[in-house]
Each structure stands twice: as C-alpha cells, then as structure tokens.
C-alpha cells in the first residue's frame, strides 16, 4: 500500500526538523488566527491568550519529535487545550473579580464575562458580539471548548473528539448542550440568524 501524501502542515514540520525556522514560522502563521481565537475564547483575557498561545508553540517545538500520525492541526490543538487547562489551574485563586481594570469603573469580572473583549466594546455593550461572548463565557468549560473548536477553528466533530480523547457522541452531546444554552440565552438573535 502506498504511503499517503504528506499534508502541507506535515511538510512544514518536516522542513522545520530539517533546519528551516521559516517553515515553522509559516506553520505558526497558518494556524495563528484560528488558534488564537480558540485560546482567547477559552482564557478570556488578551494577555493570558498571548501567553497561552506562546506556551502552545513552545510545547510544539519541545515535543515536535512526539508527533506521529494523525493531523498536525489536531496535535497542535490538543497541545493548546492542555496549555489552556494549565493556565486556568495556575490562575491566582484570590484574584478578585471586582478588581478595577480601567478608569471607567470596569471590573475584571466584566472583561472576563465578555471574553476579554476590549474595554470600549464592553462599554457599548449592546452588540450581538458582546452578547455572544458573555453567553459563551457562561458555558461550562467542556461545552465551551467544543463550541469554540467547531465555530472559531472549523474543526470537524471527529477531529474534536480525537483532540479531547472522547467518543464522537460525547463531543456532539457537548455541542448540543452548548447550542441549546445559547439558543435560550440569545432567543431574539437566534431567530435572526
């Protein structure tokens, strides 16, 4: 049986292994937007998202030899998922949600609820994006990660199930609950879409 052709990501990874930093840079840029959106949706704040994003790629570099089979994209997202979990665990438990973060009387809790959106958007407050962000931030983490992986990253449910190491039905179930929750919370907008 002939070996399946390498995907673009695998080619880039191989070129990096052969000594090309440019190839790795290209790999980062290919996935940067989708991965960053997912991470941002999971950790909330921009600064945290930057840290987790960097940590994810640092782990990819450190463990590049451990990639054997599957898709590079799925492997990277699995690493990102673990980096997100580690970041959430490391968060200071005594950091108050009432801590002011700006001069407009906004609190840390407001920003986290809005998925780390910039402060001016938060002040406007009425846009669909803000409402979606607040609702998504209110989802349980397991549902939120499936929802974000599917919507922001465009991963299939099969890929998501592999990344999370759960049966396909579990991934579908989590998405189902997430969608149900959002449909209830965003009833008006839901009809418009």
């Amino acid at each position: 049986m002939a070996a399946s052709p390498l995907s673009d990501d695998e080619v880039l990874l191989q070129r990096y292994r052969a000594g090309s930093v440019d190839a790795f840079n290209e790999l980062v840029l290919r996935h940067s937007r989708a991965l960053f959106s997912y991470i941002r949706g999971m950790v909330g704040q921009q600064e945290d998202a930057e840290d987790v994003f960097q940590d994810t790629w640092a782990r990819v570099i450190r463990h590049e030899a451990s990639f054997r089979g599957g898709t590079v994209r799925g492997w990277i997202w699995r690493i990102a998922k673990n980096a997100v979990i580690d970041r959430v665990r490391r968060r200071k438990p005594d950091d108050s949600l009432d801590r002011p973060i700006g001069e407009d009387g906004l609190r840390l809790g407001d920003q986290i609820a809005a998925g780390g959106l910039p402060v001016p958007d938060q002040v406007d407050g009425a846009g669909l994006g803000i409402r979606i962000a607040v609702c998504v931030a209110g989802l349980p983490p397991a549902q939120r990660e499936v929802f974000l992986m599917r919507t922001t990253s465009g991963l299939s449910f099969g890929e998501i199930a592999k990344i999370l190491d759960v049966p396909l039905n579990t991934a579908l179930g989590r998405m189902h609950y997430a969608v149900t929750h959002l449909r209830d919370a965003l009833a008006d907008e839901w009809r418009d879409l």
């Binding site: 949706g41 790629w57 922001t152 959002l182």
Partner: peptide
C-alpha cells in the same frame, strides 16, 4: 450559521512581539 458571528467576537491576532518570541524559540 453561527461561525462568522462567533469568529468576529474572538477575531484577533497574536502580537508581533509574541510571534517574534515564538520564532526565536523555534
């Protein structure tokens, strides 16, 4: 259906400094 709206909410790129640090790490 919801993808574009959700993507718009979380749209953004990592800062150039972060990308430069990743390149250095590579």
């Amino acid at each position: 259906t919801w993808g574009p709206a959700v993507k718009a909410v979380y749209a953004g790129d990592p800062s150039p400094e972060t990308l430069a640090r990743i390149r250095a790490l590579a």
